[in-house]
């Protein structure tokens, strides 16, 4: 197996990683890039804990091979706060009480971020739909919806 070199933008910074190709993006980010906010809950695309944004679009990083993000721009939760200042969504998640165990949280916040980037004032139905690929077993989703509403200024 030949190593491959992968160059991409990670949280606004260009990075190049040399690694084995039989890794998924979730492994690449967690093991080679120290982005442990990217969680793994199912390894089959169902739970959404591994969600990251690729060029602004939420995807499950357990379903992508590392080499597939060559040239792409990746956002993980680590890159959401700028210079120590939390993103509006982050503060609203905290204020709304939308975080319990926190395992779904990184993926949930990123799915919500992708939604708000495209649609700054989503309806309740749009919020539900945007978060439908992120399972949460703790919160019953209700406070998460509220947090997104708050961040959208709805």
């Amino acid at each position: 197996m030949d190593k491959i070199k992968i160059s991409f933008i990670l949280n606004d910074k260009p990075v190049t990683v040399e690694t084995y190709p039989n890794k998924r993006v979730v492994d690449l980010l967690r093991e080679d890039c120290e982005c442990t906010s990217v969680k793994e809950g199912c390894s089959e695309g169902e739970c959404g804990a591994c969600t990251v944004l690729v060029n602004g679009t939420p995807v499950t990083s357990c379903l992508m091979l590392a080499g597939q993000i060559e040239g792409d721009s990746i956002l993980t939760l680590e890159g959401l706060s700028k210079d120590g200042e939390l993103d509006k969504l982050q503060t609203s998640f905290v204020e709304a009480g939308a975080v319990q165990c926190g395992y779904c949280t990184p993926g949930m916040v990123l799915s919500a971020k992708a939604l708000l980037m495209k649609n700054p004032h989503p309806t309740h139905e749009e919020i539900r739909r945007a978060l439908s690929g992120n399972l949460c077993r703790c919160t019953g989703y209700t406070k998460i919806f509220k947090a997104v509403d708050m961040a959208a200024g709805n």
Partner: peptide, 17 residues
């Protein structure tokens, strides 16, 4: 504000894995 909220919302919270 929950004691663990900030660590979890920034992704800094370390889970076992």
């Amino acid at each position: 504000v929950k004691k663990d909220a900030y660590n979890k919302i920034t992704g800094e919270a370390k889970f076992a894995a």
